[in-house]
């Protein structure tokens, strides 16, 4: 976007001040307050366009750490101020893009509640900060079984090795959704330690978990192979090529062995 256009849009939105012709040089707190004001009454059925100035401020503050910090603080403060579910939802979507370690505490507070847990993960899951991972990790033992698969899944996507032990304990959970998420996430984490946990569980896998565990082990093997852990990947493939596995799993294991063999 041409800088003049950014300026025009942002000024029209009333959220960003432009100084000396630069695209964004300063975020005025009064203008930000004005942009955030509609959040206080925003609810399902409200005109979504009333929040457009916040959208525009996000793009306009790109590359300006101070302005981003102010915007993030405004969003976090709004979140803590008691918003409708729809407004909370909106703020979390924006923190998905601009959230940093400064947003983690407010988002983590939403993780245990059934109504807000997912949308908090929607933001936390995409914030590239160890504190965001830690918040998800800390929440795992505290949330209900209904919410656990989501927490486990987000930790898996982030390849959080510090969660391996906690997730492994859930492989045998009586809730099949929890157990499936645990297997899949260990596959995504894809380290030697994750592989070890999956292999150990594979020896005692109940019928309903056989396919999820085999799938997770194959994903884990691919990750290990990509990370140069060839012998560990081969061990997994060898464990999945037997007649106790469905045909397509055996095929996958054989393909994996061929791929591994082609790697130096």
């Amino acid at each position: 976007m041409a800088s003049k256009e950014i300026a025009r849009t942002a000024l029209a939105a009333g959220a960003v001040a432009i100084v000396a012709g630069k695209a964004v040089a300063k975020l005025d707190s009064a203008a930000l307050d004005k942009a955030l004001e509609p959040l206080k009454t925003y609810d399902w059925g409200a005109d979504r366009e009333t929040l457009n100035p916040i959208d525009q401020a996000i793009n306009a503050t790109h590359g300006d750490a101070a302005a981003r910090k102010m915007l993030e603080k405004g969003l976090v403060d709004a979140l803590a101020g008691g918003l409708s579910r729809s407004a909370q939802d909106y703020v979390c979507r924006k923190l998905r893009v601009v959230g940093t370690t400064r947003s983690v505490k407010a988002l983590a507070a939403l993780l245990p509640a059934e109504k807000t847990s997912h949308i908090a993960r929607y933001a936390l899951g995409r914030i590239p900060d160890e504190k965001a991972t830690a918040a998800l990790r800390d929440a795992l033992p505290k949330v209900s079984n209904k919410l656990k698969p989501g927490m486990i899944g987000s930790l898996g996507v982030r390849r959080d090795t510090k969660s391996i032990k906690a997730i492994s304990k859930l492989l045998g959970d009586s809730d099949i959704q929890v157990a499936r998420a645990a297997a899949h996430s260990l596959g995504l984490i894809g380290t030697s330690a994750a592989a070890k946990e999956l292999s150990a569980f594979a020896k005692k896998t109940p019928a309903g978990m056989k396919m999820p565990v085999a799938d997770a082990r194959l994903i884990c093997a691919e990750q290990l192979l990509a990370d140069g852990e060839k012998s560990e990947a081969i061990a997994i493939y060898n464990g999945l090529k037997g007649d106790d596995q469905p045909k397509h799993v055996k095929v996958a294991a054989m393909k994996g062995l061929l791929t591994a063999a082609s790697k130096t």
């Binding site: 997912h118 929607y122 995409r126 209904k146 919410l147 698969p149 989501g150 899944g153 987000s154 998420a181």
Partner: peptide, 11 residues
Amino acid sequence: LVDVARREPWV
């Protein structure tokens, strides 16, 4: 924006 966190139980 490459991906989103999915609502539980979907992973």
